[in-house]
């Protein structure tokens, strides 16, 4: 597909948003390989990064090759690629389902939503994908009636109607089955084909230790390190293996620092 687009003279066969999240974190979960030891950090703070395994190295090496050949066009660390896709410049785009609303609103062409591709021949693929990571936190140390208010707010936010509306308007995943069911019953998925792809691929299988999510300290900085190292691959300065090894090594230093701070 990318070959055909390139041969046809296409300037941007493929681009992506959130490269670390899609092409390393989800890649690992989807192929049921660890992103980090200790069940991706859930089992302990003494976790170490493990995304320099053969599956990840092979994938990043392939992407790097595509980047050199002009088949994969890197647009930036955040979701910059979205502008290129919505403008009709890029043919394929890997993005969070949360990008759906923007594409739907701006794209002046027909598009389809497909599940994330996976490599054949990897045992267990496709497993399931994982969420991006934004979450709400409630801190201790407030008055009881304040927590009453917090509870009411969280109840409101997670109620089926609000979640269903949120899910349908934005493309974000519904956080409860009731909201997903309400969306299905309302006929939303039939009217908007593709909007249930993200739900399906995330709930396709019972999650394993490799695919139930990530819990890593300083992860925002680690993503920054991953961005830097991946850029070295896309520009051809480093091989996939060198870059991922270096990202693991640099990230582990931050994990150790976090571990010592959290004792």
């Amino acid at each position: 597909m990318l070959d055909q687009l390139k041969e046809a003279g296409h300037g941007c066969p493929m681009t992506t948003a959130w490269q670390s999240w899609i092409h390393l974190e989800n890649l690992s979960a989807y192929h049921d390989v660890p992103f980090a030891t200790q069940e991706n950090g859930f089992a302990g703070l003494d976790t170490e990064l493990a995304f320099n395994g053969p599956v990840q190295v092979q994938h990043i090496a392939q992407m790097g090759e595509w980047a050199q050949e002009g088949k994969f066009v890197y647009a930036g660390r955040r979701n910059e690629g979205g502008a290129n896709f919505r403008a009709g410049e890029c043919a394929l785009f890997t993005e969070s389902s949360a990008g759906y609303a923007g594409i739907k609103a701006e794209a002046e062409f027909d598009f389809e939503v497909r599940p994330l591709p996976y490599w054949e021949g990897v045992d267990g693929a496709p497993q399931n994908t994982i969420i991006g990571g934004a979450s709400l936190w409630v801190m201790e140390g407030h008055e009881d009636d304040e927590y009453q208010g917090v509870a009411e707010f969280l109840n409101f936010l997670s109620s089926p109607e609000i979640q269903a509306k949120w899910h349908q308007d934005t493309g974000y995943l519904p956080i409860t089955s009731a909201a997903a069911e309400a969306t299905r019953e309302a006929g939303f998925y039939d009217e908007n084909p593709g909007t249930d792809v993200a739900v399906q691929q995330m709930t396709a299988n019972e999650p394993t230790a490799n695919s139930k999510g990530l819990r890593l300290g300083s992860f925002d900085q680690i993503r920054g390190i991953i961005d830097e190292e991946l850029e070295a691959v896309w520009s051809g300065d480093k091989s996939a293996e060198e870059a991922l090894n270096s990202a693991v090594e640099r990230g582990n230093q931050l994990l150790r620092r976090f571990e010592s701070a959290s004792r």
Partner: peptide
């Protein structure tokens, strides 16, 4: 640039802010 590509524009004060 968010400090990129790689670390080409990561100046000291940006790292203060980012970290």
């Amino acid at each position: 640039t968010s400090g990129g590509p790689q670390q080409a524009t990561t100046i000291l004060v940006y790292k203060v802010f980012a970290d």
